[in-house]
Simulated scan of single mutants.
Amino acid sequence: MERKYFGMWNDIFLVVLSIIFFLLFFLCIKSKHRKPLFILIVLLISCYGFFANIYPVENLFYSFPTAERAADYICSGELLGIVEGTDSALLVYTDPPNTIHTVILPRSEGGYHLGSNSTRKEFAENRDTKYFAQLLGCPGREDRYWYISGPLEGSSVTIADSSGSAFVTSLRDIGYSSIEEKELFHFISFALLNPTNDDTFHVTITDTGETTDLTFEDVSPG
């Protein structure tokens, strides 16, 4: 029931906004001063889109008691997993058709707030010829999270880092290759980085016996 409840409030919020903008547009049509009102409407919509991207308006009047309830509110696709830290949580989910989202939810004494572009920062990134890996965090917060993805030669993968972080891995079947005559898989893996005083981090990815080492240098909370 919780997923339906919070999804309902999300739908109501969007409906109310749509009604407000529709009424403004209707007033614009009926008014003798159409051009100034039209410009005002465009400015209002642009301002709302800009500030909602930085700071979701829901955060002004509500906080979620758990990260799961925040996920129920914002996830419209498949929830791949939630990793909780000390002052935030990482939420990974998909939206149709198959877009992957990584959102960091800041936590305060009142609960979790919705994440936005301002609460998600890339502190380190390592791209090689096969995998994509990031170390994510929220500015001003202690928690750091791994996000790693890439293709698989088989149907399983093992991931470990130098601080002993516990990775959550999701395998996705992306179809059958008639050329290679086998199923093709893609993995998404994420974890809370265990606290460490090291400045260099290593991630090891093992796929069908082949090992790839990724190195991240000078990762800092600044």
Rank of each mutant, 00 (worst) to 15 (best):
L171C: 10
S177W: 07
L192Y: 02
S220D: 12
E180G: 08
L184F: 08
E142G: 11
T212I: 09
N126D: 08
L193Q: 14
Y176I: 08
V168P: 00
F201Y: 14
S149I: 08
S177H: 06
Y112F: 03
S162N: 06
E181T: 09
F185V: 08
R172T: 14
R172A: 12
G154M: 01
T206A: 06
K121Q: 10
R141L: 11
D173C: 14
P195F: 12
D213V: 15
F123W: 06
E181H: 06
D199L: 09
S178V: 07
F216S: 01
E142N: 13
F201D: 00
I188W: 05
L193I: 07
G154K: 00
T129H: 09
S118T: 12
F201W: 01
L171W: 01
A124N: 00
D213C: 12
S156C: 10
V203L: 11
E181R: 13
H186R: 13
F201R: 04
P151L: 08
E210Y: 08
K130S: 11
P151E: 04
E183S: 15
F216P: 10
F187C: 09
T211K: 13
N197T: 15
D199M: 09
D143R: 02
R107Q: 13
Q134E: 06
R144V: 05
K130H: 05
R127F: 15
R127H: 12
S163F: 03
T206Q: 06
Q134K: 14
F167N: 01
I148R: 09
R172Q: 14
H202G: 05
E109G: 03
G209P: 08
I179K: 12
T200N: 09
S155Y: 07
D207G: 06
I148D: 02
I179M: 09
Y145R: 07
P151Y: 13
L192V: 05
P139I: 05
A133H: 11
I205E: 04
E153D: 15
S155E: 06
G140D: 03
T119V: 01
I174S: 10
G110A: 07
Y147C: 03
L214E: 10
S163C: 12
I205A: 04
G150V: 02
G175M: 11
Q134P: 03
I205R: 05
S165T: 02
S149Y: 14
L135I: 15
V203F: 10
D218W: 02
L152T: 00
A160I: 07
D128E: 12
T211N: 08
G175P: 12
E153R: 15
E210P: 08
S108L: 03
E217Q: 15
S118G: 01
I188Y: 14
F123M: 05
D161G: 06
G154D: 00
T206P: 04
R127N: 15
N117Q: 01
D218Q: 15
R127D: 14
I148A: 13
L184Y: 06
F185L: 00
T129K: 09
F167T: 05
R172N: 13
H186Y: 13
N117A: 00
K182S: 14
V157N: 05
